[in-house]
Simulated assay, not measured.
Amino acid sequence: MILAVTGGKGGVGKTTVAYNLGRALDAVVVDADLGMADLPTARGPDLHDVLAGRADPVEAVREGGPVALLPCGRTLVGARAADPRALVGAIEAVADEYGRCVVDCPAGAGSDVGMALLAAEACVLVTTPSSVALADAVRARVLARELDAGLAAVALNRAGEDPSVDRIEGLFGAPVTPIPESDVVARATAHGVPVASLDGRAAEPFEELGSVVQSSVRS
């Protein structure tokens, strides 16, 4: 399974959802945001090196942390050397080796997002309840549909006390999992660890999202 995590607007918590969803699904998370990588990183080959032909995608996966991860480089030089056209093959190679792959897409609806969606069999759309975020999410949904990345679920981040789940499910035609704002989530994100590492109860929305995704993809 290759699952893209996308969202039209930056700042909606897409990377946090992708990282924690990777843990919930026991999947490798690929940081495909070539220009603004935000997932944990470490020494060794990264996605920039893979897309520049300097490293093998499977060998670049880091298995030692709480979530298996193919990180992306953080330098402008590395981003310029990377060939985005090689992204689909790299993602498919990781999925062939590990079985499950969650791809953290860049924000927006540019060609780099399109390459990640092109590799995916399904996607999760991340949004907040704000009207601006929802409008951008609708545009991201259109792009995913055009590239045959079926919408498995919507993650409604920072959902608040009374989220409009029914309305948003009607808007996107997919199940919605509310993820409330939480100090635990903020601390886990700041320390580069999954929420479950700090508080299992706070991680329950991500576990629920993982279950929804698995049910949707199987059906």
Results as ranks from 00 to 15, higher is better:
residue 2 I to P: 00
residue 2 I to C: 06
residue 3 L to I: 09
residue 5 V to N: 08
residue 7 G to Y: 04
residue 8 G to D: 08
residue 8 G to F: 12
residue 14 K to H: 12
residue 15 T to R: 02
residue 16 T to G: 14
residue 19 Y to D: 06
residue 19 Y to S: 04
residue 20 N to E: 13
residue 20 N to D: 14
residue 20 N to S: 04
residue 24 A to Q: 13
residue 25 L to E: 03
residue 26 D to G: 13
residue 26 D to V: 05
residue 29 V to Y: 02
residue 30 V to Y: 02
residue 30 V to E: 08
residue 31 D to Y: 06
residue 31 D to C: 13
residue 33 D to N: 13
residue 39 L to K: 10
residue 40 P to H: 14
residue 41 T to V: 15
residue 41 T to F: 14
residue 44 G to W: 09
residue 46 D to S: 05
residue 46 D to C: 02
residue 51 L to Y: 03
residue 52 A to H: 05
residue 54 R to L: 13
residue 55 A to R: 07
residue 58 V to T: 06
residue 58 V to F: 00
residue 59 E to D: 13
residue 62 R to S: 00
residue 65 G to E: 10
residue 69 L to H: 04
residue 70 L to F: 01
residue 70 L to C: 07
residue 70 L to G: 00
residue 72 C to M: 04
residue 74 R to V: 08
residue 75 T to Q: 05
residue 76 L to D: 12
residue 78 G to S: 05
residue 80 R to Y: 13
residue 83 D to E: 05
residue 83 D to A: 06
residue 89 G to D: 03
residue 90 A to W: 01
residue 90 A to Q: 02
residue 91 I to K: 00
residue 91 I to N: 00
residue 92 E to R: 05
residue 92 E to D: 06
residue 93 A to W: 06
residue 94 V to H: 00
residue 95 A to F: 01
residue 97 E to I: 07
residue 97 E to D: 10
residue 97 E to W: 04
residue 98 Y to W: 11
residue 99 G to A: 10
residue 99 G to N: 11
residue 100 R to C: 03
residue 103 V to A: 02
residue 104 D to W: 08
residue 105 C to Y: 05
residue 107 A to D: 09
residue 107 A to P: 09
residue 107 A to T: 08
residue 108 G to P: 09
residue 108 G to I: 12
residue 109 A to C: 15
residue 110 G to R: 15
residue 111 S to L: 15
residue 112 D to T: 15
residue 113 V to H: 11
residue 117 L to K: 01
residue 119 A to K: 02
residue 119 A to V: 02
residue 122 A to V: 10
residue 124 V to S: 01
residue 126 V to E: 04
residue 127 T to M: 10
residue 127 T to I: 05
residue 127 T to L: 13
residue 129 P to H: 11
residue 132 V to E: 05
residue 133 A to D: 06
residue 135 A to H: 11
residue 135 A to R: 14
residue 135 A to M: 06
residue 136 D to G: 03
residue 137 A to D: 07
residue 137 A to I: 10
residue 139 R to C: 09
residue 140 A to N: 07
residue 140 A to T: 11
residue 143 L to P: 06
residue 144 A to Y: 02
residue 147 L to H: 01
residue 148 D to Y: 06
residue 149 A to L: 04
residue 149 A to D: 00
residue 149 A to W: 00
residue 156 L to G: 08
residue 156 L to E: 11
residue 158 R to N: 13
residue 159 A to W: 06
residue 159 A to K: 03
residue 159 A to M: 09
residue 161 E to D: 14
residue 163 P to G: 12
residue 164 S to R: 13
residue 164 S to P: 12
residue 165 V to R: 01
residue 168 I to Q: 01
residue 168 I to D: 00
residue 171 L to A: 01
residue 173 G to Q: 08
residue 173 G to F: 02
residue 173 G to N: 03
residue 173 G to E: 07
residue 174 A to Q: 09
residue 175 P to T: 05
residue 176 V to Y: 03
residue 176 V to I: 04
residue 177 T to R: 08
residue 177 T to N: 09
residue 177 T to Q: 15
residue 179 I to E: 08
residue 180 P to T: 14
residue 180 P to Y: 11
residue 181 E to C: 12
residue 185 V to Q: 08
residue 188 A to F: 08
residue 189 T to G: 13
residue 193 V to T: 14
residue 193 V to K: 12
residue 194 P to Q: 14
residue 196 A to D: 15
residue 199 D to N: 12
residue 204 E to N: 11
residue 204 E to Q: 15
residue 206 F to R: 07
residue 206 F to L: 13
residue 208 E to Q: 15
residue 209 L to Y: 11
residue 211 S to Y: 12
residue 213 V to E: 03
residue 216 S to Y: 08
residue 218 R to P: 00
residue 219 S to G: 09
